[in-house]
Amino acid sequence: MNKDVTFALSSAGVGESVARGQLDRGGVAMNNKPATFTLDGKTIPFSAGQTLIQAAMAAGVYIPHLCYNPEFKPHGSCKLCTVKADGRHTSSCTHQAQDGMVVESDTKEINDERRALLQMLFVEGNHFCPSCEKSGNCQLQATAYEIGMMSPHFDHFFPDRPLDASHPDYLLDFNRCILCSLCVRASRDVDGKNVFALSGRGIKSHLIVNAKSGRLADTGFSGEDKAAHVCPVGVILKKRVGFAVPIGSRSFDEQPISATPHPGPAAATLPPHPQGACPVGPRSNAATLPPHPTVKDV
């Protein structure tokens, strides 16, 4: 579709919404019935102002997501939560629920799209799951299993992203950053520190820290920060706790992400395992093996 047409549509949305009295559909139904929408045929109640994903989660229905975390203002960037609302694609983490809306999520079409988005995230960074401390607790990996991603499909970018091991307690492995901005939001909105920010543009977008030296050690970052515990992937890692929980017994090894309530913070803030560091490396467990990189899958 031409940009012009797209824009005519999206701008027309302004007119339409006002004309249709869309605001009246936002949660307070006119005839006192609780407002609902259907999600893959299932009726989901919602309250005024709730987004599609909030209402779905409250009703116990999983919609894949990465940059969304119920504790923070939605960002709407990863697009994993894409659904079709009344026939049009939209991000369910930012789209407000409306009475009578018909929403599709768990369909082949949308899951195919989600799989491609995941593959994009995998090839954009450097993800070597077997050697990653976050394996099994990683939302990217778990979502890839959930959606049945068997290969990265696209050519890898192999970006050059140096680690930052300057901080005494924490390590930053930028190779795995998916630019979800959760650490940015947590540090700014909860910790009031602005330790993290996004810089660059396009494919060169990257995470930076708040220090002239560019090193985490020279920021106000601390392990107590909320920002230390929100990364859905394995960028912000506590040092010296490597493999405290053996691979195979981690949150998403126990149950798939779709069955894990509020996977984001729960997984990330999982207490360190009582036994202390496990001397054994990652098990060659089929369930935790990363998608194997092949040149193509047709």
């Binding site: 960037s77 990863c78 988005l117 994009m120 696209f154 970018f157 660059g200 396009g202 494919i203 977008s205």
Partner: peptide, 21 residues
């Protein structure tokens, strides 16, 4: 487009680079 993508969303950030490759 690859040069001008703002990089905010996954499909465009990665997709425009894939397309240009």
């Amino acid at each position: 487009f690859a040069h001008e993508s703002c990089g905010f969303c996954t499909p465009c950030r990665v997709g425009t680079s894939l397309l240009s490759n």
